[in-house]
Simulated assay, not measured.
Amino acid sequence: MPSGRVVLATHNAHKVEEFGAIVGATRPDLEVVGYDGPEPVEDGVTFAENALIKARAAAAHTGLPAMADDSGIRVDVLGGSPGVFSAYWAGHKKDGVANYELLLDQLADIADPHRTAQFVSTIALVIPAEDGRPAEEHVVEGIWPGRVATAPVGDNGFGYDPVFIPDEQGEPARTAAELSPEEKNAQSHRARAFVALGPLLAGLRA
């Protein structure tokens, strides 16, 4: 049973579940809990800046070590957009379906070889000062290459998962939303970021 806690700076239950599964694979003694405090203004212009803003706020509010993920999809033909604006691509409301439908409209005339994209996950870990030990801040990144589908497929996942086809698959290629949770957790951008984050989590006390 988990004996320690690390807070994930999100109100998104899907992310808490996904992070919990990934963390549990290497640190089953750590419980990933959701954040119930106020959301800070994410006014950073990079994934790293926004991840740190959220992790700092969650650590300050809870007194626990805090992780925050700022992630999105970068489409090469769009110059790396939506990027940090992925969650609001179709407007101010975080509407995942509206976001990917707008993206598909923008790429409607783009041929498959030019629909290359990457899911990016930048994870910040903030460890509050304790017992004379200074506070620590770390940032890691994971990149999952692929391409944008021409139509949404699949019922798993969230966000842009139904329109993102990861590379390094056999045939038929599947979208991220067609992968099982176990498959996605093994290869996703967050899983890749956790390869770098793992040694940092190893230093957390349970």
Rank of each mutant, 00 (worst) to 15 (best):
L30C: 14
L30A: 08
L30K: 12
L30V: 12
E31K: 14
V33S: 02
V33T: 04
G34R: 00
Y35V: 00
G37W: 09
E39G: 05
P40R: 14
P40C: 12
P40I: 06
P40D: 09
V41K: 15
E42P: 02
G44Y: 01
V45P: 00
T46L: 15
T46Y: 06
F47G: 05
A48S: 12
E49S: 10
E49A: 11
E49M: 11
N50F: 04
N50M: 06
A51R: 06
A51H: 07
A51M: 04
L52Y: 03
A55Q: 13
R56K: 04
A58G: 12
A58N: 08
A58Q: 08
A59R: 07
A60Q: 15
A60N: 12
A60M: 15
H61D: 10
H61V: 09
T62A: 07
T62I: 04
L64Q: 01
A66F: 02
A68V: 00
A68R: 02
D70E: 03
D70P: 03
D70C: 02
S71G: 06
S71I: 10
R74Q: 08
R74W: 05
V75F: 09
V75K: 05
D76K: 03
L78N: 05
L78T: 08
G79D: 11
S81N: 11
P82Q: 13
G83W: 13
G83A: 05
G83I: 08
V84K: 00
S86M: 15
A87R: 07
Y88E: 04
Y88I: 10
W89Q: 01
W89T: 07
W89N: 01
A90H: 01
H92L: 12
H92V: 05
K93E: 14
K94Q: 14
K94P: 09
D95Q: 04
G96A: 11
G96W: 09
N99V: 08
Y100A: 07
Y100V: 13
Y100I: 09
E101F: 03
L104Y: 09
L104P: 15
D105L: 11
D105V: 00
D105N: 05
L107Q: 13
A108Y: 01
D109W: 00
I110P: 14
I110C: 13
I110M: 06
A111I: 02
D112A: 10
P113C: 05
R115S: 03
R115Q: 14
T116N: 12
A117R: 14
Q118R: 15
V120M: 08
V120E: 13
